[in-house]
Structures are given as structure tokens and as C-alpha cells.
């Protein structure tokens, strides 16, 4: 059964991919991209990668789609027909693809339990996690502890994106009174959004603190948290959303998350351990690990939520055609 779902989903992905290349309406393409991402997230569920599925859906189908929509709204909606057709791209792609197919011929088969990836390094993570880290979710233990340094890099990457968007687009404050033109038509939506808003934030906290036991963690929580505010901004207007969480605060929060993460690492050094060694944080190693993981996941969540909001505000506070008066360039 799993195989069937796997095969069908891959087929659907392929069809969607071809449609994305062919279609010229960027709006339609954006929605297909969202569907593409949703399908791949489904595939991740089938392939046992529940954490990844959660993230891909929230990032790919959620945030990326919204960013794409905002960009299409600020630029053109229809892609022009290329003025010249060249065979070179097709040639490059065919060669690259052929090389990859050639490379698959000696690969271990899909799902083979004796493949090298399942024999070296990884089995020890599964075996040692219960006693060394003491959390059931092995993905969390590897992410936050064994390869915690990669995750620090990941937070830095998203922080970089935040700074970049801040520098490129800036976040200009909107007046509260500046409401969407059809504000009065949105009563139902506003009521629902207001009801949902606290629930979404609560759910984000659940995902954050439940990440040790089930799919989830700081990153996913941050995205969900930000999504709640995006919903609020969509229904109540940007000015109101910026009053709830001022853009100036967002920059500080984004930096604070990275600092919290690195502070945990440096604390490990100060206590005589290595950078990011959690064992020394508490009297017994396992509770040290728990504490360390909790703190860094919180740091990740703060930065991710703040940066996604910076990015969102940055995009939606631009006016079509670049009529942003404050911008000198």
C-alpha cells in the first residue's frame, strides 16, 4: 500500500512540475507550487519523515507561497514569451539528468535496510538517544544535540535572510487607520481570525515543547507562531498587526534568538566543556541535555518567528510599481 501511495504521489509531483514549467500565468504557477510542496510534504509522511513533513508544509506550502503571491502582486502576473529559444538549457539539463541517472545505477535500492546509510553512524543515534539524551524523538536529539552546531548555522542563515530583507525592502510603519478598502466586508473573517489567533499561538507553543516527544520543535513552532500573525495582518490590516508586534521589536527578537542559542553554547564552554556541550549545564548529563535542547529550541523559535514576520512585513509594505516614497533608490 505504501508503495502505491509513493508511486502515485511521485507521479502527481511530476505532472505538477511539468505544468509549472509550461504555464505562463504566474498566479496559477504560484498555486501549483504550493500544491507541489503539499504533495512533497505528503510524500515525506509516507517516507516516515514526520518532522520534515511538518516543516515542508509550513514553509513550502505556507510561507513561501505567501511570499510568492506578494511578489507576483508587486510585479507582473504573466510571464512573457521568451524572445529567443535556445537549445543550450535543454542540453545542460539533459546532460545533468543523464549523469544523475548513471549515478543511480550503483545505488543501494530504495528501502534496503542494508544500505550503508543504515549501517554506519545513524543506528547509533537511535540506540544511544534514550540514554544519552533521554528524548524519544531521535530527529530532535540529532538536530539539537549531536548536530546542534548545524542548527546554529541554520538559525544564522535565517537571521541573514532577515537582515537581508530588512536592508533590501525595509519595514515601514503603517498607520493604524490605514485599513483595507473592503474592511467592512470582512466581519466574518475577522471574528474567525480573532477566535483562531490565540489558538494558533497556543498550538505553536505545543509544537515547541512537544518537539521532544513528537514531530515538531523550535523551527516549526516559530513558523506557526508567525503564521498566526500573518492571519491577523491579513484580516485586520497591516497597521493593526504592526501595533500588536512592532517591526522594531522584530529585529531585536531575531537577534535575541541567535544570541540565546549561542549563549547556551558559550555557557557550555564557561562551565569547562566544549562549545554546545549540554552535559555540563546541569548536575546530571541527561537533564543538562534536556535543558540545553529546550533553550536552544526556544532560541530557534524566536528567531524564526521574528524573521518570517520581518520578511512578510517587508513584502506587503511595498506598493506596486515601487511608489514607496521613503525609499531613495
Amino acid at each position: 500500500m505504501q508503495h502505491l501511495v509513493d508511486i502515485v504521489l511521485l507521479g502527481l509531483l511530476m505532472i505538477t512540475g511539468f505544468a509549472i514549467v509550461r504555464m505562463r500565468s504566474l498566479l496559477a504557477v504560484t498555486m501549483l507550487t504550493s500544491i507541489y510542496s503539499l504533495f512533497s510534504a505528503l510524500l515525506f509522511v509516507v517516507l516516515d519523515a514526520v518532522d520534515v513533513a511538518l516543516t515542508e508544509a509550513a514553509i513550502g506550502a505556507g510561507i513561501s507561497t505567501i511570499l510568492l503571491l506578494a511578489t507576483v502582486a508587486l510585479t507582473t502576473e504573466y510571464e512573457k514569451v521568451p524572445s529567443h529559444r535556445s537549445l543550450l538549457p535543454l542540453l545542460v539539463v539533459t546532460l545533468t539528468g543523464a549523469a544523475l541517472i548513471y549515478g543511480t545505477l550503483d545505488m543501494p535500492h530504495y528501502g534496503d535496510p542494508n544500505a550503508p546509510v543504515h549501517r554506519h553512524v545513524a543506528p547509533d543515534y537511535i540506540e544511544d538517544t534514550p540514554e544519552e539524551i533521554g528524548v524519544p524523538n531521535v530527529v530532535t536529539s540529532v538536530l539539537a544535540s549531536y548536530r546542534g552546531y548545524d542548527t546554529l548555522g541554520e538559525v544564522t542563515v535565517i537571521f541573514t535572510a532577515g537582515v537581508g530583507v530588512l536592508a533590501l525592502l525595509g519595514v515601514h510603519l503603517r498607520k493604524r487607520t490605514e485599513q483595507p478598502s473592503d474592511y467592512h466586508k470582512l466581519v466574518v473573517l475577522r471574528v474567525i481570525a480573532k477566535l483562531f489567533f490565540p489558538l494558533i499561538l497556543l498550538f505553536a507553543l505545543y509544537v515547541l515543547f512537544h518537539g521532544d516527544y513528537g514531530p515538531g520543535g523550535g523551527f516549526q513552532a516559530g513558523v506557526i507562531f508567525a503564521t498566526g500573525f500573518v492571519l491577523y495582518a491579513l484580516t485586520h490590516g497591516l497597521g493593526n498587526a504592526e501595533r500588536v508586534i512592532p517591526p522594531a521589536l522584530l529585529g531585536i527578537l531575531a537577534a535575541a534568538g541567535v544570541l540565546l542559542y549561542s549563549a547556551v553554547g558559550i555557557e557550555g564552554m564557561l562551565l569547562g566543556g566544549k562549545f554546545l556541550e549540554y552535559n555540563v549545564l546541569a548536575d546530571d548529563p541527561v537533564s543538562g541535555q534536556h535543558l540545553g535542547i529546550l533553550l536552544i529550541e526556544t532560541g530557534v523559535g524566536i528567531t524564526v518567528a521574528a524573521v518570517i514576520l520581518i520578511i512578510y512585513f517587508g513584502f506587503v509594505s511595498r506598493r506596486p510599481g515601487g511608489a514607496d516614497a521613503q525609499d531613495p533608490s
Binding site: T156, F159, V163, G251, V258, I266, M269, F275
Partner: peptide, 23 residues
């Protein structure tokens, strides 16, 4: 302490200072 953690500090110092610089 400082010398034994030199390899990590080499990267961590600029990394930590980046968010501080933004603040």
C-alpha cells in the same frame, strides 16, 4: 579555557557579534 576552545571561538566570535551589531 580560551586557548583550548580556540577553533570554536574563531567562528563563534564573529557569529555572536553579528546579531549584537544589528542591535
Amino acid at each position: 579555557m580560551l586557548l583550548s576552545n580556540l577553533p570554536a571561538l574563531q567562528v563563534v566570535v564573529p557569529l555572536v557579534s553579528a546579531p549584537i551589531c544589528l542591535l
